[in-house]
Design a protein around this nucleic acid. Structure first.
Lengths: 219, 219
DNA sequence: GCACTCCGCATTATCGATAATGCTTGACTC
DNA sequence: GAGTCAAGCATTATCGATAATGCGGAGTGC
């Protein structure tokens, strides 16, 4: 009962545009596409055996989160993500996740099981040392908190930060201990489980602020 | 020296996708497309004399800001924006613009001329009573502040809120005095001109918080 | 009468081809 | 020799057509 006959076991799950997007992200995260590289729609399409359309949609999405940059009628290239971009994102993300923590603590009414599950998954992955998988697990952890805040505006703003991509890039470029990193999320889970909105807000803001590259948050 | 011969003086400025997007927003803002209405790509395309592709891209963008909702392989419909959506957006927007105010106050180094220009434009428009134009002017005012913060992550998160659309919808549905509304932005301009980061942050947070429909912010 | 299956239709997702744009190069003028 | 203009080329933007998907209704068996 094969899904389809013609596709060579590759690019067969969801929409092609999504798969192309993930492919490009990986290429960048793993250094096969370096900043400044010009991306031609038809070329990528040919590589992946799709047509121009899904590639185009992937470009649009990645441009929206700042991974690519494009000029109308000219072209699209890999944006040079400098440390400043990561630094810029921190206060924004901290503010958003602080709100998320405050709302989630109240709205999930003591049932933080989903968050704890994501935390456990993150710990497991950290043990394997797979940095790419860890980046994904961490993103899912944080996203689940934002989702539990039940505020679509918040979710959209947070998504627009392109956390997943940034986390992958950050993970790929540093040597931080994964287990240690995962462990540092424990206090978030506990704060949420306590149902204390203020504490959750505070813990999340402080946690995310520590993502400043090469520095430690303090007040 | 006409731009093109074939187009009937309509849909001729920028990319078709952008024009389709603006068209749909207007249709919704002016009540010709009501919540729940199913949108068919080919139908809109036929109406506007384009093909399916630009319509599709417009749908994607509007889905991203929450104006439409779509299911893969099924269809896209006008989302029912309820008061809750507007309420949800307020704390997020307040947090983002507070950050923007703090950064902008410092980074523009006393030169708030751009912001003042947008303010003046908003006051002018308010005088005409054109609510749609006012919504646009107000959005431009706020966007200019976010832009002056020189933080792309912030800009992206803010854009994802779809402020323009929400403002249009809010404007279309209430009877607030435009001049009064415009005037309430003066303190923001003054705070920014003073270059005082904390004051700008505070004034913006408080101003945006007042956008809560039917209520007044207090602490 | 009710539940289940299968078929046809409406709609989107993807494709391959064409039109439009803007950069670049090279010739021409002053 | 420097500047200007235009034609060619690379690339995207848009198009029209086809493939794939999923929903709903007709038909069937119990």
């Amino acid at each position: 009962m094969k899904p389809t006959e013609r596709a060579p076991a590759r690019l067969t799950r969801v929409s092609l545009a999504d798969q192309v997007r993930d492919y490009i992200v990986l290429e960048i995260a793993q250094g096969r596409l370096t900043p400044g590289t010009a991306l031609r729609e038809m070329e990528i399409a040919a590589q992946l055996g799709t047509s121009q359309t899904p590639v185009r949609e992937a470009f649009r999405e990645l441009t929206a989160v700042g991974l690519l940059e494009s000029q109308i009628h000219v072209g699209t290239r890999v944006r040079n993500i400098v440390e400043q971009d990561l630094v810029d994102g921190v206060p924004v993300r901290a503010a958003l996740e602080a709100i998320a923590g405050r709302l989630a603590a109240v709205r999930m009414e003591g049932d933080a099981s989903e968050v704890r599950e994501k935390f456990d998954a993150m710990m497991d992955v950290a043990g394997t040392g797979d940095r790419l998988a860890y980046a994904s697990a961490s993103t899912q952890f944080h996203r689940s908190i934002v989702r539990l805040a039940h505020n679509e505006s918040l979710m959209r703003s947070w998504n627009a930060l392109g956390i997943e991509v940034m986390t992958i890039l950050a993970m790929a470029s540093n040597e931080m201990s994964l287990v240690e990193a995962a462990e540092s999320h424990r206090e978030i889970v506990e704060a949420l489980e306590s149902g204390d909105a203020e504490r959750s807000e505070r813990v999340l803001a402080s946690h995310v602020s520590r993502y400043l590259p090469g520095t430690v948050h303090e007040h």
